[in-house]
């Protein structure tokens, strides 16, 4: 197992070289640069723009800047300097990554704890009203765009007053007790997490239902029933365990999927996450920040897949990791 993990991590290295390379190339291909918004401001003198262009190396080819960045990362673990934010990239990423991570974690938790039981229920009770309602909800969740759902959630919060309208913390957060702080964050995060979970929830539910239905008709279950096992054990212990494999694989991708899905949710619901940072950095053409943020997304994708593979091996004895 250890060898396997080590080998998997080694395979990742080329990705770490290629992702920044293509990001630099793409940012370079897009017209304009990080100083664009200055150029339109009549109060900013030409001299200042010239000095800054030179300082940032914007007058040099992109591969030189890429090389400079690679050297910085490998020799000094320096992720570079965000010229739009006038500060190093690392602390910006650190602040936001944590926020996005807890949002994604909660969303995953909601996804699984809702979709798996409902998927099982609608498979076991196929074509009954329970199944039909679940399917209906699933189709709704799949077809409503996330932006719309986020705005809807904001309106819901406004009309009912049950939830705060966007943000992560109340203004008085610093004066709360530890428990109060925890509750405050949970209160703020629940709505964005639900919105983020909605689409995934629907996918998982349909997957679970389909897989389980395949299994329920299988011969080994008939055998199990014939041997007198209770229906709970038949479905819970044997059928579900076989049906859940594809879901674990899906989980591996979901971590990074949540990251990209959170871009819209974070913007509309004013959530201070990484997704928003990427978009703002892209619009500002702040290349080092874009690269670092995408790299974090890549890390999540890789780690997610690794975890999924390990989980798969644990849940299915037929799979061996070598």
């Amino acid at each position: 197992m250890k060898v396997y993990i080590l080998r998997r991590l080694l395979q990742v290295l080329p990705i770490f070289v290629l992702v920044p390379f293509f990001t630099f190339l793409l940012v370079e291909l897009a017209p304009g640069n990080v100083l664009d918004s200055w150029k339109l401001n009549p109060e900013i003198p030409d001299k200042l723009i010239e000095q800054k262009t030179e300082e940032l190396g914007l007058d040099r080819p992109w591969y030189e800047r890429y090389w400079r960045w690679v050297k910085g990362v490998t020799l000094r673990l320096d992720l570079g300097y965000s010229s739009a934010n006038k500060r190093p990239v690392a602390p910006i990423i650190r602040e936001r990554l944590y926020n996005t991570f807890i949002l994604a974690l909660l969303a995953t938790l909601i996804e699984w704890s809702v979709s798996v039981p409902l998927g099982i229920l609608s498979a076991v009770r196929q074509y009954t009203w329970v199944d039909k309602i679940c399917s209906g909800i699933a189709f709704l969740g799949l077809s409503i765009p996330v932006v719309f759902l986020a705005l809807l959630a904001l309106l819901f919060a406004k009309v009912t007053g049950w939830f705060p309208v966007g943000g992560l913390r109340s203004i008085d957060y610093e004066t709360f007790t530890t428990w109060g702080k925890f509750c405050d964050i949970l209160h703020h995060i629940i709505l964005p997490a639900l919105v983020l979970a909605a689409a995934g929830m629907a996918t998982y539910m349909r997957q679970m239902r389909g897989n389980l239905l395949d299994q329920l008709g299988a011969d080994y279950l008939t055998t199990a029933r014939a041997k007198g096992l209770s229906e709970t054990v038949v479905v819970g212990k044997h059928a579900v365990r076989n049906a859940i494999n594809p879901l674990i694989t899906l989980f591996g991708f979901s971590l990074s999927g949540l990251l990209s899905g959170s871009v819209l949710v974070e913007t509309v619901m004013s959530y201070p996450g990484l997704g928003r940072t990427v978009v703002e950095a892209l619009f500002a053409q702040d290349e080092y920040l874009v690269v670092a943020a995408l790299l974090m997304g890549t890390v999540l994708l890789i780690v997610g897949n690794l975890i999924a593979d390990i989980l798969l091996a644990l849940s299915d004895p037929r799979i061996r990791l070598r």
Binding site: L151, L154, V165, G166, G167, I171, T267, V268, M269, S270, P272, R276, E280
Partner: peptide, 8 residues
């Protein structure tokens, strides 16, 4: 208060 979206 930072609110990045004008509808929000």
């Amino acid at each position: 208060l930072s609110i990045p979206d004008l509808d929000a």
